[in-house]
Amino acid sequence: MRHIISVLLENESGALARLVGLFAQRGYNIDSLNVAPTDDATLSRLTLVTHGNDQVIEQISKQLHKLIEVVKVSDISEAAHIERELMLVKVKASGNQREEVKRCADIFRGQIIDVTPTTYTIQLVGTSDKLDAFLQALGTTPIMEVVRSGASGIARGEKTLAL
């Protein structure tokens, strides 16, 4: 099953390598990973999408927690949460297709952020599923490039993952 794991990590060199290394060493999957400093510059927030059975996910969580630089770990997909991923897609868009791509982007509440006579670059934010659906919906439109951030997530309501 798919899980979104959020990690608060000391913002130190080598900490990320240690975390990623753990997944390689122990044979855990990483479907996507994103990381950036938080409002507290000494901390990084990392969101990791992985999949596995309950036992594997429990081990991932425990092994992550064992890393000295990991401050907090939470499987945010265990409770109500919001998930967002950013995607930038560059597509061929000329002639009749131009209007069709624009319409499609509008339906998905995407924005065209760069335009040339033959291309559009579309920015889209949503759950990873929604981004997948958009790529499907583009149909025959030739896709030139796709950049995805990997999912970020946050718990709904009062619950926080902070110091």
Partner: peptide, 14 residues
């Protein structure tokens, strides 16, 4: 050495 020892030590620092 930090890279080499990472998976075989509890922690490493420089």
């Amino acid at each position: 050495m930090l890279g080499i020892s990472r998976p075989i030590c509890k922690h490493n620092m420089s």
